[in-house]
Design a protein around this nucleic acid. Structure first.
Length: 307
RNA sequence: GGUCUCUUGGCCGAGUGGCUAGGCACCGGUCUGCAAAACCGAUCACUCCGGUUCGAAUCCGGAAGAGACCU
């Protein structure tokens, strides 16, 4: 524990479990504000598909990092880490508690533990590498990585082309092995962190996912996606709920099939999120309905004598 | 009532005597800059009963269920 009375309360958990609602209830209780840690809710255009908090919800408690980027803007974990660290001191001036709520595990970890400094990617180089991947195949990139950075080559999953690309990209960009940048030493933060994860019975979660998906269609997800179709190549639109609808617009899928796929991919996403938060044993798990238990837990942490 | 065909895991589907089919779903996992990405792993069958055989999802007989046609 850090020797001060500033607390960042993380509310994590799988999609559709009820994080937004829980965070708002807690924020009202502790009279504090909310930082969103959801890599898709960053984009203002992805209102329905990314299940952004509604206007009513946003009016109840001040939220940060919701809809503050355009889909064509480049943004990544490191930017998020820096932006949050810059904002937090201001929020801590107003209240000793800040809530960070979201499902993007990598982004949450970056805020809590830091992420190693690395140079920005070069769009041209990245382009070149994708071309090479297409023309020469993965094996060629694998071999080059082996030459440039044996440590990474031995460590990463060589069947995962994204990882190979990333490592190679950094080697070529900097002239140094990618592994040299990976210090992985957790940074200390000038505030305390309380990690809470929410979950419910799997069948219940699946029900909620299905219902929320149906609701998105009622709210006009098809129109939202249609409007965004010209930007479908943007990374922000490689998102469950949009990519399937683009296939439907291409007439590769029936609407019903697209809906089923969105539900399935959302279930998969939820499973991966649970995996991510599970392996970090700092998380204390709660059912979102047990709000008073959550409050009690937070209070017990906050009232602990500082050493 | 009669004749014929079919019955493989949650779903689809191959297999005609001995060797894990496969795909999808579901489940578990990996994770340092595209992360709602990318990738990996595991479980689950032969409708039932009897027979032939060293050995049956596979051959034979019967039962049940489904379908097609006939009276």
């Amino acid at each position: 524990m850090i020797n001060n009375n500033k607390y960042l309360i993380v509310i994590a958990g799988p999609t559709a479990v009820g994080k937004t609602n829980t965070a708002i209830l807690l924020a009202k209780q502790f009279n504090c504000e909310i930082i969103s840690a959801d890599s898709r809710q960053f984009y203002k255009e992805l209102k329905i598909g990314a299940a952004q908090p509604t206007v009513e919800e946003l009016n109840q408690v001040k939220h940060y990092f919701i809809g503050f980027k355009t889909i064509t803007e480049y943004y990544n974990v490191s930017c998020f880490e820096q932006d949050v660290l810059q904002l937090l001191p201001q929020l801590f001036k107003k209240n000793n508690i800040v809530i960070m709520c979201g499902g993007s595990g990598l982004y949450i970890d970056a805020v809590c533990n830091g992420i190693d400094d690395m140079p920005d990617y070069d769009p041209e180089l990245r382009n070149q590498l994708s071309q090479r991947l297409e023309n020469e195949g993965v094996e060629s990139l694998r071999l080059e990585l082996k030459k440039l950075d044996l440590t990474t080559y031995q460590k990463i999953d060589l069947r995962n082309k994204n990882r190979i690309m990333r490592a190679l990209e950094m080697c070529l960009l900097t002239g140094k092995p990618y592994s040299q940048f990976l210090l992985k030493i957790p940074k200390t933060r000038p505030f305390n962190i309380i990690k809470i994860a929410l979950n419910i019975a799997r069948s219940e979660l699946h029900n909620k996912i299905n219902k929320r998906c149906d609701l998105m269609f009622e709210q006009g997800l098809v129109n939202e996606a249609k409007f965004l179709e010209p930007y479908r190549k943007q990374n922000a639109l490689k998102t469950v709920g949009y990519k399937e609808l683009f296939e439907y617009f291409d007439k590769k899928l029936e609407l019903e099939q697209a809906i089923e796929l969105i539900k399935r991919n959302t279930r998969r996403y939820a499973r991966k999120q649970i995996s991510w938060f599970n392996r970090n044993n700092e998380y204390k798990w709660f059912n979102p309905d047990d709000i008073s238990d959550i409050e009690e837990y937070i209070n017990s942490k906050i009232s602990l004598p500082i050493d």
